[in-house]
Amino acid sequence: MNRIIALSLLAGASFAAQAHKSWLLPSATVLTPDQWITVDAAVSNDLFVFNHVPVKLDKLVVTAPDGSRAEPANPHTGKFRSSFDLHLTQKGTYRIAVANEGVFASYELDGKKQRWRGDAAGLAAAIPATATAVEITEGISRNETFVTSGAPTTSTFKTSGKGLEMVPTTHPNDLFSGEKATFQLFLDGKPAADLPVTIVPGGSRYRDTQAEISAKTDDKGQFSVSWPAPGMYWLEAEVEDKKTTVAKAAGRRTSYTATLEVLPQ
């Protein structure tokens, strides 16, 4: 009986410690030319396990090695995940990203707490004039992964200058266990200095801990990580500041997420 209670408490504590994680998971990241991949997209408690909600694909952008926009095939959104196929017709590195911009608002109406999320353009019409205790936050997020067909290229590693973005120093499809990789984060086009970065290996559902790897950017926005083992990894960084472009917004939350595959030596 004591063992059952202890395991229940441990499971509850583990669940409470895990925040929902948004991710894109390609079926492969390094392929020979002219191949197909499937990409799953979800938000979950356990990394790369479909158990919460799907990532919507309306803001999906796939950038081909020549800079053009590649169109995914067979997009589908179900109860717990979205998925799509991608034909890698060009040689080089593809950047697959879901980028969102919008606002989150909370307010009280007739004594009840209300919440709203959407585009900034719809904010004024969404909140009643009689609402009180209105709090508005701007949100910018980027969720991405990289896939290479043939030899890796770097032409897709361009920043938009808005929100948090990553420019790999070590190619994201050239990662191996036991080796160190270096990346650079930018915030609104400038190096994001002194920023905490969290890296979590997949398979967290079958571990007692998240096994997080912590890093921090230097004054150039660079950080490094030594990969302890092969597998899929989830990388995340987040900034909260007052640099909002939305009227009446009190602050801004911008985040960056990437899924990276580390191969065995």
Rank of each mutant, 00 (worst) to 15 (best):
M1Y: 06
R3C: 00
L7Q: 05
L24T: 08
L31S: 08
T38Q: 13
V39Q: 10
D40Y: 02
S44M: 05
S44G: 04
S44Q: 11
F48W: 13
N51F: 06
T63F: 01
P65M: 10
D66R: 00
D66E: 09
R69T: 15
E71L: 15
A73M: 04
P75T: 07
T77K: 05
T77V: 09
T93C: 05
Y94C: 04
N100P: 05
Y107D: 08
W116D: 03
W116T: 09
A121I: 03
N143A: 02
E144S: 04
F146K: 10
A151N: 14
T153E: 07
T156G: 10
F157Y: 08
F157S: 12
S160W: 10
G161F: 02
M166Y: 04
T170V: 11
P172F: 12
N173M: 12
F176M: 11
G189Y: 01
K190V: 03
A192F: 09
P201C: 08
G203R: 09
R205C: 06
E212W: 00
D219G: 13
V225Y: 01
S226P: 01
W227L: 02
W227Y: 07
G231Q: 05
W234C: 05
L235H: 06
E240T: 11
E240G: 09
D241Y: 09
T244D: 10
T245S: 15
A250E: 11
G251T: 08
R253Y: 06
T257D: 07
L260I: 01
